[in-house]
Nucleic acid binder design. Structure first.
Length: 304
DNA sequence: TGACAGGGGGTGT
DNA sequence: ACACCCCCTGTC
């Protein structure tokens, strides 16, 4: 357990540096569910055994402060674990896809996070027919009630610092208690998945290391994990940028911007992989960010 | 202030 | 197609 004091602020050398909008979209745009805004330019996030604060300095450069100096290296992996974001972006077909180019220009430096595999699975098991705010509440309750503390509480700072429960820990939690964490019908899925994983030591780690298709086949065998959830876990929790999760937002945006009206999710997924290539998941994140921004815009400006 | 629908980043049958 | 849970949000 770390000492209960924040380190000094240090630069987080991300290239290109994300602005406030892109940073918010990256950590709080549906990839991760454990970042909380603490101020206009200040965030606090949890992943694995890490707790970090993030902010932009006066020049817009990202800085971090944590409870353990080791969190610096973990942050770099968290943000840059999939490789150089500039090279990745250049590998997308923006030259021949005007809409994609527009999305990328709107969110320069948007990244796919490299999160811990197991807790990404937990997050997306909670995501079915839920919005981000509600998923975040579920995660917060699971961590507060069933996760171990990773740091002493900082003085003059009453916020708890719990990591999420491991799958082994979740396997020991009665389903009724899971329902108490706002999980609803997802509690049964999580309980079932926890029992499955707890009974097979090494299964999750092996799955993470498998090639995309084999890893996905194993994930969809878990209760509550279908195509969409499996692709989210592989994309956001295993760096498999070829994964192309198709949810209702992507279904809508692909229908509206790519003429895929009436296409089924599996067809859209096939189109996405063929059209966007091996980095289709990154393209998906740009499209998703664009649609989210559109939805927030006043409808009068949207009809243009 | 408070009740009341409506609908929500899917999955399983 | 529809049930599955139940909380959030917008509305009266």
């Amino acid at each position: 357990m770390s000492a209960g004091a924040w380190t000094d602020w240090r630069p987080l050398p991300l290239q290109p540096p994300p602005g406030a909008t892109v940073l918010a979209e990256t950590i709080d745009g549906g990839q991760a569910f454990r970042w909380q805004r603490e101020g206009e330019q200040l965030w606090r996030g949890f992943w694995g055994d890490h707790v970090a604060r993030l902010r932009l300095d006066a020049a817009g450069r990202p800085e971090w402060s944590a409870l353990s100096p080791a969190t610096g290296a973990a942050l770099t992996r968290y943000f840059d674990g999939n490789g150089d974001p500039r090279a990745l972006a250049d590998g997308l077909p923006w030259r021949s896809d005007a809409h994609l180019a527009r999305c990328m220009a709107e969110f320069p430096g948007l990244r796919i996070l490299r999160q811990p595999f197991g807790e990404t699975l937990l997050g997306f098991l909670c995501s079915a027919t839920k919005q981000i705010v509600q998923i975040k509440q579920m995660m917060a309750l699971l961590a507060a009630r069933h996760g171990a503390a990773v740091a002493e509480r900082v003085e003059a700072d009453a916020l708890p610092c719990n990591r999420l429960p491991t799958w082994a820990e979740l396997a020991a939690v009665p389903e009724a208690e899971l329902r108490g964490c706002l999980l609803g019908f997802r509690a049964r899925y999580i309980a079932g998945t926890a029992r499955f994983i707890a009974a097979r030591p090494g299964w999750l780690e092996e799955t993470e290391a498998l090639p995309y298709a084999e890893a996905k086949a194993r994930l969809v065998s878990l209760p509550g994990v279908g195509e969409k959830v499996a692709d989210c876990v592989l994309l956001f929790g295993a760096g498999r940028l070829e994964a192309f999760p198709v949810d209702v937002w992507i279904l809508k945006t692909m229908a509206a911007r790519y003429g895929l009206d009436g296409w089924k999710p599996a067809q859209v997924a096939q189109f996405g992989r063929a059209h966007f290539g091996p980095l289709a998941g990154l393209a998906q994140q740009y499209l998703f960010a664009w649609e989210r921004a559109e939805a927030r815009r006043p409808s009068s400006a949207r009809d243009l």
